[in-house]
Design a binder for these strands. Structure first.
Length: 334
DNA sequence: AAACCGATCAACCGCGACAAT
DNA sequence: CATTGTCGCGGTTGATCGGTT
């Protein structure tokens, strides 16, 4: 495919925009609309490339741009959408009126991402960072050196790791020993383990869409909705159930505790059950850390928007709940 | 007062998608 | 069908600012 020579043309100005340049661009677009970005700079009398003009307009000069701090609602939306869409900043921005993809991307990288990391959450997978538990060496040594999982070793770290997780690991190992055809597919594995430990199926928060499906999702985004996606949990992702599905996405504490009833199990058209987070793996129950005090889970249902970063984090921590996504590949830890 | 450092964010860069030729 | 041109996206950079030493 061809690629336009753009900003590498000599003689074109780069760097920060001056108020005069902004005025020229504003004035021209108000009169003629953006039209062809390539020819716009020349017509508007700007020594800039079209790309630079488009960026300046979409990220800064556009009249409908909302400035200022992100609200909790916006932040919550960003996190929820990111858990579904990943780094599709433009798709996320499409659902946040007045916010640009660049602004959201910056905000994610400078605020949300760091906060999630501090809370022990992988900002990519939106899952607890199990690597922090350092169970990989434990598990791998058990697998490699012994046919039996030495639970006494595990007991020694129970102060750090919840018995539920140990039970999960134990079940995994016994499954592997009993069944030489132990599934390599983590999704199959997930369901087997779930049956073993009598817990409900876990809802997937991760999926991989084909480019066409991604495009469809992004297209739907402008209409407010993702479309059909490859993950079974999302196969019936239709406009009519989008909101319902969305509220069952991971929430890191931005939903008012009094509203957690929206996390009740939901049955979709595929009879896939979405379970209340309380019934599944909760991060609180997996690892005991100072930031995951369960005592605050049912605390005040009133949240005061102070705009204080620490309070946001504290609030997040108190409400932290998790599910293990189907895409979680525990084999990486073995 | 100056140097240093980290955070923030506007702007740039490279690439892929897609329409036009 | 191949090539070209344009647009938009996501990742990255670098200037600036405020806080700390």
């Amino acid at each position: 495919m061809g690629r336009a020579p753009c900003c590498d043309k000599s003689g074109l100005k780069k760097g920060p925009w001056t108020p005069e340049e902004d005025d020229k661009l504003n004035h021209y677009i108000q009169l003629h609309g953006p039209g062809n970005w390539r020819t716009l700079p020349k017509n508007a009398g700007l020594q800039r490339c079209g790309k630079s003009c488009r960026l300046r307009w979409t990220n800064y000069l556009r009249p409908d741009i909302k400035r200022g701090r992100f609200s909790f609602e916006e932040e919550e939306t960003i996190i929820q959408l990111h858990s579904v869409l990943g780094n599709k900043w433009s798709a996320i921005a499409a659902r946040l009126p007045g916010r640009t993809d660049n602004e959201i991307k910056n905000y994610w990288n400078t605020h949300i991402r760091k906060r999630l990391l501090r809370m022990g959450i992988d900002p990519v997978t939106h899952s607890p960072r199990l690597d922090l538990l350092d169970i990989s060496s434990l598990l791998s040594s058990s697998v490699c050196s012994s046919s039996q999982l030495n639970l006494s070793n595990l007991l020694g770290i129970q102060t750090l790791v919840n018995p539920e997780l140990l039970r999960l690991a134990s079940t995994l190992l016994s499954l592997k020993q009993e069944n030489p055809h132990f599934p390599q597919n983590p999704q199959i594995w997930n369901s087997q383990v779930q049956n073993q430990i009598n817990t409900p199926p876990l809802q997937s928060n991760q999926f991989h869409a084909t480019p066409t499906q991604e495009a469809a999702a992004m297209q739907a985004n402008t209409e407010g909705l993702p479309s059909n996606l490859t993950n079974p949990s999302y196969q019936n992702f239709t406009p009519s159930n989008f909101d319902e599905s969305l509220v069952s996405l991971p929430n890191y504490g931005f939903i008012n505790p009094s509203e957690t009833s929206t996390f009740q199990s939901v049955e979709n058209q595929n009879n896939d059950l979405y379970y209340n987070n309380n019934q599944g793996f909760s991060f609180d129950s997996v690892i005991s850390t100072p930031i995951s005090s369960p005592t605050q889970l049912n605390s005040s249902s009133t949240f005061i928007n102070t705009g204080n970063e620490d309070e946001r984090e504290s609030y997040c921590s108190s409400m932290l709940k998790f599910e293990i996504p189907e895409s979680f590949n525990i084999s990486e830890f073995m």
